[in-house]
Nucleic acid binder design. Structure first.
Lengths: 92, 92
DNA sequence: TTATCATTTAGACAGATTTCGAAATGAGAG
DNA sequence: CTCTCATTTCGAAATCTGTCTAAATGATAA
């Protein structure tokens, strides 16, 4: 759940696409996986990277595991970028 | 200069540290390199990744090459994150 | 229990990434 | 032109990453 983990997680296009898919609500691993042309195991791996980075949370409901977007961690990213933009010249 | 290149470039801690160093103005490759405990060739490689991603620009002035932060590309990142945060439920 | 469905974990592999030292390039100074 | 300094490019080694198939786990249904 470190800063580095978050950036690393976002550096893969499949993982960013997963986050996009989760924009409008929680979905099961299967629903997410069906959107990609790759093995379910691979998508499962990407989901675990996103989970360890704190970008999604998972919730088992019976047979299914629902994944949901966790936006709060994204604020760190925005904050870091703002830091670069903000104090650009001669503050203090 | 693609979206993917930008995220990839930001996924390395050394490269993010370089951007931080450049926050308060342009610096030469040597000045940047002296802040890290790694070969100059390695830092030069990181600088080229940042340049290809459009995150920095370089400017040769005599013997030295000055690198400068290019903030405009960072807006893409902020924009993408805002997209995830924003339209979270039932728009349209 | 056994069968089946949803998903993850394990192990392996190819390709990408980070890093280095050494050689090459660019540019001013003598 | 030659020397030196700043930086990059080259080529290679070690490590990391994304992907696959096959096997394991969790949960429900019969």
């Amino acid at each position: 759940m470190s800063f580095q983990e978050t950036f690393k997680a976002l550096s893969d296009p499949t993982r960013r696409a997963i986050l996009d898919i989760l924009k409008d609500g929680a979905k099961t691993a299967g629903e997410i996986g069906s959107q990609f042309d790759m093995a379910g195991a691979t998508v499962s791996h990407h989901l675990s990277v996103l989970r360890e980075a704190g970008l999604v949370s998972d919730d088992r409901r019976g047979k299914y595991i629902y994944y949901e977007l966790n936006v709060s961690v994204l604020d760190q990213i925005t904050g870091w970028v703002a830091g670069l933009r903000g104090e650009k010249r001669h503050e203090k």
